[in-house]
């Protein structure tokens, strides 16, 4: 398009310039030079560079994915460990609770046994005391009965006042 700017001085194309064979050797020569230059620059510099960049990117993405996979596995592992720790802690707490309960039970049992023994001793003592009291009361009753019977017998028939016979009769009656 710039070829026209000279106005009237410009030569105009006769038919198709494409078919002007006089320019062919020139065009073909420079085309071949161009192609050789482009081929060398592309195959030596540009294409290996782009190929390495693409490979590097592919590698980086792959390694990132691998890393993410590892992280995920680690997270799963950590979760499992956490759950296990939780279960362990719960079991341990249960064991401690059981042990404490058993200990307290033991203490309680000891205290109960002790209390029982004390109560038994106390009640045996009381029983002895009661028996003593009852015995002394019995002997007192016998004595009072003997005296009363002797007095009654002496009043009613003084001739037959036999102390031994009265006592035997009283004790026989008391036992009966």
């Amino acid at each position: 398009m710039a070829t026209e700017t000279n106005g009237a001085a410009t030569e105009h194309a006769q038919g198709m310039p494409q078919l002007d064979f006089s320019t062919f050797p020139n065009q073909i020569f420079w085309l071949l030079v161009t192609l050789v230059v482009i081929y060398f620059v592309m195959s030596r510099v540009a294409l290996p560079r782009i190929a390495s960049v693409l490979a590097e990117r592919h590698g980086a993405i792959q390694s990132d994915l691998d890393k993410a996979e590892q992280m995920k596995a680690k997270a799963v592992e950590a979760e499992a460990a956490y759950n296990k720790a939780l279960v362990d802690a719960r079991a341990e707490a249960q064991a401690i609770v059981d042990a404490t309960r058993a200990e307290i039970q033991k203490d309680v049992d000891v205290a109960m046994a002790k209390a029982d023994a004390e109560i038994a001793a106390k009640s045996a003592e009381s029983e002895t005391a009661i028996k003593e009291i009852r015995d002394s009361a019995m002997s007192a009753i016998e004595e009072v009965a003997n005296d009363t019977a002797e007095a009654i017998v002496a009043k009613i028939m003084p001739a037959a006042a036999d102390k031994a016979a009265v006592q035997a009769a009283v004790s026989a009656r008391l036992k009966g």
């Binding site: 398009m1 410009t10 105009h12 194309a13 494409q18 020139n26």
Partner: peptide, 10 residues
């Protein structure tokens, strides 16, 4: 109009 002038090799 000279549409083919742009193809001249000079």
């Amino acid at each position: 109009i000279h549409p083919m002038d742009q193809f001249l090799v000079k």
